[in-house]
């Protein structure tokens, strides 16, 4: 991306694996990158505003939290209501990801994807029913895909070097 300078790229490289968990994490990053603590804070704020950083936050491991059951629920939602309904579904506390995607007809009529987590399949199914109620008549059909096996999982690492 053209509006990133060398220091932005250094900052991205220094923080993409995570922040140090110390009293002054931005100062720790500053000493690695040759910036001042305030520079680090200012640049991260700007990257956040630009949307290059989506959020500075923690991500929990659902399995470790006992949420061993997860299902990808998929819904065929009337395009006229897809945005409005997507927002409602995305705001549910048991939905970790919610996306609008294109349908792939005739194989795949669904355009709204919502990942649902629970302690058991029964819990996931009951949450699926809650989403169904929320969507009401705007949804004509739906399905749920349980994950059977993880075939590959690598960290999504950005490589700003070529950016």
């Amino acid at each position: 991306m053209s509006n990133l300078d060398t220091y932005d790229l250094k900052l991205i490289e220094a923080t993409q694996a995570g922040l140090p968990i110390v009293e002054k994490p931005y100062e720790a990053i500053a000493s690695q990158t040759g910036l001042s603590e305030q520079d680090v804070i200012d640049r991260l704020s700007r990257l956040l505003k630009q949307g290059i950083i989506r959020k500075i936050a923690a991500a929990p491991n659902h399995y470790a939290l006992g949420l061993c059951a997860n299902g990808m629920t998929v819904w065929d939602v009337d395009d006229r209501f897809a945005n409005e309904k997507g927002q409602l579904v995305g705001a549910l506390d048991f939905v970790s990801h919610c996306y609008l995607r294109p349908r792939a007809l005739p194989h795949w009529p669904y355009n709204l994807f919502a990942m649902v987590h629970g302690r058991s399949r029964e819990e996931v199914e009951s949450k699926r029913k809650q989403i169904s109620k929320l969507l009401g008549d705007a949804c004509t059909s739906d399905d749920i895909l349980y994950s059977k096996r993880i075939l590959k999982k690598t960290g999504l690492r950005v490589s700003p070097k070529g950016a």
Partner: peptide, 11 residues
Amino acid sequence: GILTRFGPFYD
């Protein structure tokens, strides 16, 4: 491992 990530989430 309860938290898998902690820091900026780059888009």
